[in-house]
Design a protein around this nucleic acid. Structure first.
Lengths: 125, 125, 125, 125
DNA sequence: GTGGTCTAGACCACT
DNA sequence: GTGGTCTAGACCACG
């Protein structure tokens, strides 16, 4: 099992797999139109049963993130609109998670923005 | 094993435990000066060996987040300075994680700030 | 159990072990950068459980006196600054112990210095 | 067993006991001419067999540090000369121990004196 | 009852 | 082979 495939028992594994792959697509690890590994290889890499991997990929296909070309394999969609939607979702999720955490620590909206800007300035140098 | 104690194999369990408890302290789930569950109870709750829990708590004590009062138990520190430091660390970590993710998606600094503000406005209403 | 490993019940064994090893480092018995015996061998030599020895060594590592190189062993630090700090601490401790004893016997500061000088002169010849 | 009675296996216990008591006499814990606890009580306090304690006290009597008054008990000698000799011995021992340790750390005679003076000045304030 | 220490023995990752 | 982690279970000092 390669790196990046750690699962917990809070959600079904196939959903966690789908999430990992979606993240890789949105971050460009798998580029637009790129051919994905075969289901079998993918399953091997993730250390799961091929059926589980197939279900994860099927979910992603339903969301329009990947397309299947019969007999040649599965590809990342080249539909930029779909991709944009995915990115927005992931971005939304990430931001929500971050901001909720900051709020829990007692930060108000202005403080949050200031903290973000502060971080950006520091990491710019 | 109660909720909130899911471990993965990427890091030692005792470090993950320490992180969970640190998060609970920083978010106020365990208040300033509050008595923590006994090591044995805590271990039971987390589903680990008391020694493992003890090690996690020992680490937190060394970081100044909790203090031990002999024969009565362990308490969250009432040192606001230590607590402030913890919060800053956790905040920093959270923000870094979020911003790195957004950057990977191709957002520039200004877009990041705008996205955050956008989210805050929407969730304010 | 080889010589030099006598423990009393006044302090935890792992602390006494750490003290013995620290003393050996400060006195040059274990030289700068030298590889230490393996945890298991060390434990055998001291007549304690490997875990106990590991804890002692872990404490020393945290104090910056030894460093661990994964899968090859533990080494005395080659950081002369750390070593200097250790020596100063041990020197301070030794001197304090000695002077307090002399004071208890009723010697004033001048008498102490004179006694020391006297001893040095006698042992020089 | 009260505090101050920790024995190791390097020397006979009765010698270690004698040393402890000698130290207490030289430091004034047991004053000149003071009556000592009964052998039985003393043995109880030290957690040893009365015979062992008796032998330790016998040694001290031979060194002229304590005297036995038949039927009333044992007393610290009121012979100041003996006491002076004891103090000198203990002082000598303490100083030798300290200086040897400092030498092992690589300090020369002048550095030793300077370190002692330095300590005295600091602890004077 | 609390935390702290120590032992025994297992399994792991790394090289 | 190395160190690191984890479990299991014992005993101790303290209040």
């Amino acid at each position: 099992m390669a790196a990046g495939w750690e699962f917990d028992s809070s959600k079904p594994i196939y959903q966690q797999i789908a999430q990992v792959i979606a993240r890789r697509i949105s971050s460009g690890t798998y580029a637009l139109g790129e051919r994905l590994p075969s289901v079998r290889d993918f399953a091997m890499e993730a250390g799961v049963n091929p059926n589980t991997m197939a279900r994860a990929l099927s979910d992603l296909e339903q969301r329009g993130l990947i397309v299947t070309e019969r007999a040649t394999g599965k590809y990342v969609t080249d539909d930029e609109v779909q991709l944009k939607k995915l990115k927005d979702e992931m971005m939304e999720e990430k931001i929500a998670d971050c901001i909720e955490a900051l709020r829990k620590m007692g930060l108000g909206p202005d403080e949050i923005v200031r903290a973000i800007q502060n971080y950006l300035e520091r990491s710019a140098s």
